[in-house]
Structure formats: C-alpha cells, structure tokens
Design a protein around this nucleic acid. Sequence first.
DNA 1: AGAAGTTCTTGATTTACATCAATGCACAGG
DNA 2: CCTGTGCATTGATGTAAATCAAGAACTTCT
Lengths: 157, 157
Amino acid sequence: MKTIKVLKGQLLQSKGDLNSKIYIIESGLLRSYTIDDKGKEHIYMFGPENWLVADNCEPSVPCQLYIDAIEDSIVNVAPKEEATKQGADMDAILRRLNSMQNRIVMLMSSTARERYLHFIETYPEIPQRVTLKMIASYLGITPEALSRVRNELAQRK
Amino acid sequence: MKTIKVLKGQLLQSKGDLNSKIYIIESGLLRSYTIDDKGKEHIYMFGPENWLVADNCEPSVPCQLYIDAIEDSIVNVAPKEEATKQGADMDAILRRLNSMQNRIVMLMSSTARERYLHFIETYPEIPQRVTLKMIASYLGITPEALSRVRNELAQRK
DNA sequence: AGAAGTTCTTGATTTACATCAATGCACAGG
DNA sequence: CCTGTGCATTGATGTAAATCAAGAACTTCT
C-alpha cells in the first residue's frame, strides 16, 4: 500500500487492465466510469475524501471501468489481495452494498427528476465540485435533460 | 439460524420491515423486488439454489425490498448480526459486488436487447423457471418490449 | 372436457428522453 | 479589450420503449 499524488485529469486505470487496484482517497476527487460501444461515458461512481474506488472484479480478469482524477488528489493505492485478506472493514462493505442497491432500485424505477433530487440529497458536496455533464452522466440522463429538470425545480419555487 | 419451508407465492419480507433477515436458499426460488409509487413491481434479484437474498440495509432501518417465493422452497434464515459477525464468506461478497456493478453498468448503458442477451447468458437456468413478465421486470423493461426483442432474435436465425 | 384464469403476443398511440443544432456566457491568454 | 474554448441552456426533431387495448394460447381446476 503506497500513497500517490495525482493531477486533475490523470488516468489511474483503464478498461481492460489486469490486476486492477483499490484506491482510497485521502483528498481530492476521483471518478470511475465506462465508455460504451457508441463512445459515450457513463460515470459509475464519484470518489471524494475517504471513499474507496475500485473495479469489483477479480484481479485476474480485465476490468471494465476507467478511473481518473477530477481534482488534484492524494490517494492510497492497494492491491486487491491485500485489502481483501486483512480484516477488510465489513461495515464499509455493507454500506457500499447498500448504496449499490439503492442505485439499482433508482435506475430501475425513478424518473430523471427523482434521480436528481435523490442525488443532491445523498451527496450534497459533490454537485459543486463537478460539471453538470458529469452529474447527468452519473444519473444516466443527458445534460440537456438535467438542465430542464433543474429549471423546472427552480421555477416551482 | 433456522431452516424453513415456504410455499410458492408466500411473502417472507415486506417493504418497511425492521430487522430484515438474510435468506439462503437451499432449494426452490425466491425473488426480491420493490413496488414504486405507481404500483409497478421491479425485481431486484432472483434467488435460486445456493444464493443469498437480503435487503442490504442496516437491521435498524426499514428495508425497501419485498421478498417472496416463486417456487416452493427450503430456506435458511439468519439474522444479519449473526451473518456479518461470523467469518462471512468474503469471496461471495466480492462476487456479489461484482454482479451488482455489472447490473448498474448495464442499466446505464445497454438497450433492451443487450440486457436480455446478457441475462440469458449469465443466468441460463432462470428463464425456464419464471414468467417473461418477471424477466422483463428484472431487466427494467415491459413484457411487451421483451416479447418484441425475443421475436426479433428468433427471426434473425 | 369445459370454464376460468393466466401468460404471451400484436397493434396503435403516447411519452420520456435522446439527439442534433444553435446560441449565450464566462473565464483565460494573448 | 478582443477572441477562443468549454459549459450550460434552448428549441426542434427523432426514437426506443411505455402504455393501452385486444385477442390468442397455455394452465389449472372442477
């Protein structure tokens, strides 16, 4: 486990990489994402301070996520074996499972508006640090759709 | 941890329940699902033999998933504390995280057809045991859309 | 076997959201 | 101060899938 400094925009992991690592963010902001066949980016997760970002695949198989830095960041890098063998904070894993479950339920049953409202409520710090385009990508909608949702919400007041 | 027998259609857990349990399927088939504001069901997960079905929330908060039996089943029921404290099979948890990640990536970036193809490839045994309506619900599409996808694929041969 | 309920398919219509294209805006560097 | 570049917004149009409405094909039960 070593600590590294990464600059905004720097790529830490590419789709297809073997032996992908686990990144624990000390400061800054990372993101993990895929690029589909049409070349479109889909943000899988944001990684602010104290979060853990990784592709949840076995070390031996090619990973499917890209990981890069949205802000200059200080990051701890650990190989997966290490992190899984030693105690591995069970509480953190359960929180993670829970947030993924929420995400799946949202993606299956919520409208663009509901997703946005849930997002800003759940992650109030993130919106100020990323572009609307990235939020839209995380929510699974287009920037245009997000813009409209935000307008409707602003007017409704 | 006790073993119970459940009949097809029997409800094991309701949205809003506190102290939700963990269900390990010995034989039969369970499903977990939500019902949205419009009354629509969204299947979160199927639980065939040897799978574990649960709402990944803390025992103290109301859960968001319903769980019932699609077939007559034999199921082991464990309280969450028990399952998380004792060893807790780390391999199984990682596999689970991985399959949830796949699900999220799929929901964000794949068409109805791609989802269906991925599903029958990943879970070849399930389709024969559940209705198309349930498959559609799992994939996040309507039964009609699924019917059309299947027709196109059948003709394409 | 026949009735009654499901499940599946088909067609017509609507809707939410994507896509495309154009414009406005702000900040950065010359 | 202009001017380029990236981001957000707006409007027009397109499209995949949802919804609505029937009907056909299976099941299940008596």
